[in-house]
Amino acid sequence: MHTDDHWISTPLTADLLRGALDVERTEHGLLPHRLPARARAQCADPQLAMAEAQPSGVRLAFRTRATAVELDTLPTKRNYVGAPPRPDGVYELLVDGVPTGRGSVTSGHTLTIDMTAGTAERATGTPGTVRFTDLPDTDKTVEIWLPHNETTELVALRTDAPVEPAPDPGRRTWLHHGSSISHGSDATGPTGIWPAVAASLGGVELINLGFSGSALLDPFTARTIRDTPADLISLKIGINIVNHDLMRLRAFAPAVHGFLDTIRDGHPTTPLLVVSPILCPIHETTPGPCAPDFSGIGEGRLRFRAMGDPAEVPLGKLTLQVIRAELARLVADRSGSDPNLHHLDGRELYGETDAEAHPLPDDLHPDDDTHRLMARRFAARAFTAEGPFAP
């Protein structure tokens, strides 16, 4: 911690943040949330609580002449029993949109998760500092993207020149909701997750409501989207519903209708794109639930496998193939009265040939290169002149 005269300490406030829907004052500082308090109060699931508090797509944004920036944070690290330690979360600094630095905070709380026992043990830690130096001595917009996969309490911000909140960039706001793939699972940095790359390619401001394991058509998520200002909305629906074996076909279509109806209550004409699941071979014809396969965990390999019985599909069990067909039918039915509702088959982002060239390392989540591939394809289909998000 610096007390030197040339360091200016700027109070951390919500107006320095983009991509967060709520902030919580903790004993240490500011904790960004991606669901508002009212939504969080309606669900006791620890997986959702962990996912929405991980600041995927959340960034500090300010104007300054500073050549040096220090950010004190208190991360919560996750470790899994029997697995090698996970890498520290990555902070990425952009100057006027150009990647200029990366760093990590190695200290913090630790959450040790035993996936076989279904337990989690918390160890208390201390804050740490991520530093960025040798920045250009000019007036500039600085963004610090927070780790997409690590809960991060913001403790202090220090610079060697004054800071003010960055002005509204005047770009359209794209709100995206999806699963762990949209959250950024297995991407190595926060600007490399596919929604962040796609937002950059599309020239839009991102609000990422990708929640690992938690894209489950929850009514409180629909109300959150309804109440959040946005110019463009996309929903990636399906994989988590199969993973959790959450519902059968009878419940699925009405739940999607209700989710869309709620969003339309607040965004009656906003371009709204429904994206079906990307290819995931283990769940194409096999229902959930999905379970971790620990057989390779000692070597650092965690895989997932589908535990359901394909023979139960005629009884209403859901697979990715069933969900894709249902979403295509449902959007087609609604689009007659809702010309701003659109559909995209997720296999256009990642399909059969990609599974051979870019296999999913754990059979469920894409790697860094595949995130970028999906982003380029999404941008080409959504943000170009013929796309639903055309400028």
Score class of each variant (00 low, 15 high):
residue 54 Q to T: 09
residue 200 S to N: 09
residue 171 R to S: 10
residue 99 P to S: 15
residue 60 L to Y: 03
residue 142 V to Q: 04
residue 175 L to V: 14
residue 333 D to T: 14
residue 389 F to L: 08
residue 352 E to M: 02
residue 68 A to V: 01
residue 250 R to K: 14
residue 119 T to C: 08
residue 275 V to E: 07
residue 280 C to P: 00
residue 195 P to K: 02
residue 304 F to K: 06
residue 327 L to E: 09
residue 391 P to Q: 13
residue 162 P to S: 13
residue 270 T to Y: 11
residue 161 A to M: 06
residue 344 L to W: 08
residue 84 P to C: 07
residue 198 A to N: 09
residue 14 A to G: 08
residue 4 D to N: 13
residue 139 D to R: 13
residue 245 D to V: 05
residue 158 R to F: 03
residue 46 P to I: 11
residue 224 T to I: 03
residue 278 I to K: 00
residue 49 A to P: 00
residue 239 I to W: 02
residue 203 G to P: 02
residue 349 L to M: 04
residue 194 W to T: 00
residue 90 V to H: 03
residue 86 R to M: 14
residue 361 P to F: 13
residue 161 A to S: 14
residue 69 V to D: 02
residue 268 P to W: 13
residue 127 P to W: 12
residue 37 A to N: 02
residue 374 M to H: 00
residue 75 P to Q: 14
residue 306 A to I: 06
residue 379 A to P: 07
residue 188 T to E: 11
residue 43 C to W: 14
residue 312 E to A: 13
residue 383 F to R: 08
residue 346 G to W: 10
residue 142 V to R: 01
residue 143 E to N: 03
residue 290 C to M: 14
residue 126 T to K: 12
residue 114 D to M: 03
residue 99 P to Q: 14
residue 379 A to F: 12
residue 170 G to L: 12
residue 184 G to W: 13
residue 89 G to M: 10
residue 246 L to C: 01
residue 14 A to I: 08
residue 259 F to Y: 15
residue 377 R to D: 13
residue 25 R to G: 13
residue 46 P to C: 05
residue 44 A to N: 12
residue 68 A to C: 07
residue 122 R to A: 11
residue 5 D to K: 15
residue 293 D to N: 15
residue 89 G to N: 04
residue 42 Q to H: 05
residue 101 G to T: 11
residue 252 F to C: 06
residue 285 T to F: 11
residue 367 D to E: 06
residue 340 N to W: 09
residue 55 P to C: 11
residue 367 D to F: 01
residue 303 R to W: 00
residue 111 L to M: 13
residue 258 G to I: 00
residue 83 A to D: 02
residue 167 P to M: 10
residue 209 L to K: 02
residue 189 G to W: 06
residue 126 T to F: 04
residue 104 S to P: 03
residue 300 G to T: 08
residue 318 L to M: 06
residue 147 P to H: 12
residue 14 A to M: 12
residue 157 L to W: 10
residue 274 V to P: 04
residue 235 L to S: 07
residue 332 A to P: 01
residue 171 R to T: 14
residue 353 T to M: 06
residue 45 D to E: 10
residue 32 P to E: 05
residue 84 P to L: 11
residue 204 V to M: 04
residue 83 A to G: 05
residue 363 D to N: 15
residue 363 D to F: 10
residue 17 L to S: 05
residue 28 H to D: 10
residue 26 T to S: 05
residue 282 I to Y: 09
residue 264 R to I: 02
residue 111 L to H: 08
residue 205 E to K: 01
residue 123 A to Y: 05
residue 112 T to G: 00
residue 164 E to V: 15
residue 88 D to I: 02
residue 346 G to M: 09
residue 23 V to C: 12
residue 390 A to D: 01
residue 245 D to E: 08
residue 326 E to C: 14
residue 231 D to S: 12
residue 240 N to E: 04
residue 355 A to E: 07
residue 228 T to M: 13
residue 54 Q to G: 00
residue 275 V to R: 06
residue 4 D to L: 14
residue 3 T to V: 10
residue 199 A to D: 02
residue 371 H to F: 07
residue 316 G to K: 05
residue 307 M to A: 10
residue 344 L to C: 04
residue 309 D to Q: 01
residue 209 L to C: 12
residue 229 P to C: 09
